[in-house]
Design a protein around this nucleic acid. Structure first.
Lengths: 282, 282
DNA sequence: TCGGATTACGTGCACCGTAATGATC
DNA sequence: GATCATTACGGTGCACGTAATCCGA
């Protein structure tokens, strides 16, 4: 049994060429490293270096050992990472959501239901969200379509309807409704963290320009202080106390009216029963 | 970076079930092992055990870590073995011989020609000797057939002729020669380390009985003090000063007259040129 | 003369073992 | 009471750093 730090030091020497440089990198003294390398040779019972009095170089054995050592070090660190990840995964619930609106509410709910667990949430426009749920990247997902009942357990949790958010002077401000394709070609203010809505907009309005905003406050300022059209939803309008003179014109496209489903893989149904029960009660 | 002995100790605990038993196995005290396991948890920053005051058991993290640790330990020890083998191989010449007679002479020659190298020699009846030469198990081989010139470098080094070694009273003792098949069915004294000769005898005399002798001295005693037929060769008779009243009757089979070739793989031709030069001179 | 490796030497602390304590059966 | 784990405590060996030495460009 040879301690792994000796191999680590050998690799440092291989990377730096001299004991002095490697010792500095390793934050130990040069004599300490020199002795370590002697000890390594001793324990392996194999000469690893050519010693030319004032120059230490790896011989053929040394080169081979360095190769193996790199592997071993890699394996150990990856092993440690995996153990930590495995542990962390057991104490965190990862939520992937196709849309932003429900996230704060569900995170709060999960925090209450699963005390002591860490809740992590990501909003993603990735259409593979369901695959990622299956693969374990997420334990829970918020989807805008009901997933296959064979493999997933799900229940509807909310619905949301999209509106275009126009200044009163906009030509369409008085319309009862509008289709996305009728808005194509215009320039919009758009929040960047809107999950699947982003893909929908770009698909339906391939010629529109979107001025992406990372910060929700900045977007609010721009909506208040420009004539650029933006979007909003009934869910947002219901929740926020944000007042504006803008007009919300409903989008008539079928896809603009979504029902969200909360889902987990079948095998974790029991674990997340409290979540589904909560939403069925409502 | 976590030292590998901690993982070794963890595996010992997994194998023995209690700290006390594992500590005994590891030749350390129980408290030392207890502290090591605490340190391992500490450095991983992951809980590995369920602690029930008087009983320590692996939790899920622990089980996973043990699995990984076994791998890591295996990899390290195999790595060390390979490094040592690589080193040893550079300082030893392995000779594989299909027959015993030439071995002492060639070992002595190699010792002189390659000072400082360790010479190891094996006598083998394995018909795959040539493959083993190719695969690096041996660097030199003594064969009884000339190998393919495309892949191997070789030169003839000696010839040997087989005799059956009979007491004067034996019915065949006066014959000028005899075929092996004519000897089939009899019982012979046979030395065990005779390489390919063994296979030859068994093939040509499928119904004979062979009383195998591990010790050459014992064989000599039996030859001197029994009437059982044995074998010898011209090479043996030339070299040894062993006197006997037995009669050596030549074997007439073609295969009983062999020329030995010393061979190495083509890529090592330069290295072994001194050996070939020595035999060409003769 | 400087940079690099090894040797010499004194020291601290990390880890060990013994002993004591706590807990469970 | 026996077994097993943890905590306490005192001792020690080992690896470290500093300093000295040697060597070569």
């Amino acid at each position: 049994m040879i301690e792994i730090h000796l191999f680590e030091q050998l690799v440092a020497f291989a990377d730096h060429g001299t004991l002095s440089a490697a010792a500095e990198e390793l934050h130990i003294s040069q004599p300490a490293l020199s002795r370590s390398m002697q000890r390594l040779e001793d324990e392996l019972d194999v000469k690893l270096f050519d010693r030319q009095k004032s120059r230490l170089t790896l011989n053929e054995n040394g080169e081979l050992t360095v190769q193996y050592a790199r592997n071993l070090l890699l394996q150990e660190s990856s092993m440690i990472d995996q153990i930590r990840a495995f542990d962390r995964k057991k104490r965190t619930i990862s939520l992937g959501s196709c849309a932003p609106v429900l996230v704060p509410e569900i995170v709060s709910l999960l925090s209450q239901l699963y005390e002591g667990m860490t809740i992590s949430a990501e909003i993603t426009g990735d259409p593979n969200l369901l695959n990622q749920l299956q693969e374990g990247r997420y334990q829970l997902a918020i989807l805008h379509e009901k997933p296959d009942e064979e493999e997933f357990c799900s229940c509807p949790v909310a619905s949301e309807h999209l509106y275009v958010f126009l200044p009163p002077a906009h030509p369409l401000a008085d319309a009862d409704g509008v289709c996305l394709k009728d808005l194509d070609g215009q320039t919009f203010l758009l929040y960047s963290q809107i999950g699947f809505w982003d893909g929908l907009c770009r698909r339906k309005m391939p010629n529109a320009r979107f001025l992406m905003q990372q910060e929700i406050e900045v977007l609010g300022e721009l909506v208040a202080n420009s004539a650029l059209p933006a979007f909003t939803t009934d869910y947002v309008m219901r929740q926020s106390d944000y007042k504006s003179d803008r007009v919300a014109v409903p989008i008539l496209d079928e896809e603009a009216n979504v029902t969200y489903y909360c889902a987990c893989v079948k095998s974790e149904r029991a674990r997340f029963r409290p979540v589904f029960r909560h939403y069925r009660k409502d």
